[in-house]
């Protein structure tokens, strides 16, 4: 089956020979390695979308079953904070893309700047989320058996939520919580990319981790783009 390469002067038995240091030994060319990494991340993004998909389906089903309660409950979310967070995330996706661009051009310091801004945006997002969560905790807007917003002491403008509104908050916390976890993971990945960029490991020939990290960050953004209108605006 295996007939020898006519030009087998790769000198493979001599070790890694002409392979550049970033090229793993089982790849033939840097392009092959880059394409593989990118395809791998795309496939992983598909799995993430299906995982969130389960939650979106659950949300839509229960919203369909009790639309009135869901609308009443969603009025207790702060759409202004949600909007600010949307803008923050969209902006961070732009800066992540710019980081890839500057990395492709070999501008190390610019890459550092864009990555830092992206990570700061992620921190801002989490900060705002923290403020939102504390309000919900304070008002007893919690999932399942921790839900107390139906009690008189949590009356909002004179009326209380029905107990079954706990379902809305169960889904709200699962969806935003899982998304928040992804923000943290994405931030850590970008932080690792930042460190490697600082060490000068990237060049116009090799910037795969920047590209992959940014791809993941776009996923984090994408999930929010669907989550925000569905939960905050439509209810």
């Amino acid at each position: 089956m295996a007939s020898a390469h006519a030009d087998s002067e790769h000198a493979e038995h001599a070790g890694h020979g002409d392979h550049p240091p970033y090229l793993a030994h089982h790849f033939d060319t840097p392009e092959q390695q880059f394409d593989s990494a990118k395809l791998g991340m795309w496939v992983f993004i598909v799995t993430e979308i299906l995982m969130f998909g389960g939650l979106f389906v659950a949300y839509l089903i229960y919203k369909g079953q009790e639309p009135a309660i869901f609308i009443e409950a969603h009025n207790r979310l702060d759409w202004k904070m949600g909007s600010v967070n949307t803008i923050v995330l969209l902006f961070s996706s732009l800066t992540a893309a710019l980081a890839v661009r500057s990395s492709q051009l070999g501008k190390k310091n610019e890459t550092t700047m864009w990555l830092t801004i992206t990570i700061l945006c992620a921190l801002a997002f989490l900060g705002i989320k923290y403020v939102e969560y504390s309000h919900k905790f304070h008002d007893g807007l919690l999932p399942g058996r921790f839900f107390t917003a139906h009690l008189p002491e949590h009356a909002h403008n004179g009326h209380v939520l029905p107990q079954r509104a706990s379902m809305f908050f169960a889904l709200y916390f699962m969806m935003t919580g899982l998304h928040g976890l992804h923000v943290v993971i994405g931030m850590s990945i970008l932080g690792w990319v930042l460190v490697r960029n600082h060490r000068g490991q990237f060049s116009p020939e090799y910037f795969t981790p920047v590209e992959i990290g940014a791809l993941y960050w776009h996923l984090v953004d994408l999930v929010w783009i669907y989550l925000f209108p569905l939960v905050y605006l439509v209810g």
Binding site: V43, V46, T47, E48, L50, M51, F52, G53, G54, L55, A58, Y62, P143, G144, R145, F146, S166, M167, A170, L171, M174, L178
Partner: peptide
């Protein structure tokens, strides 16, 4: 594996949350 397993992941996560926090889903 890639398309189906994440749905099991979220299902089992919901089940664990249901037991731990009484989520109600």
């Amino acid at each position: 594996q890639v398309l189906a397993t994440p749905v099991l992941a979220i299902t089992l996560l919901l089940l664990a949350a249901e037991r731990t926090f009484g989520l109600g889903i």
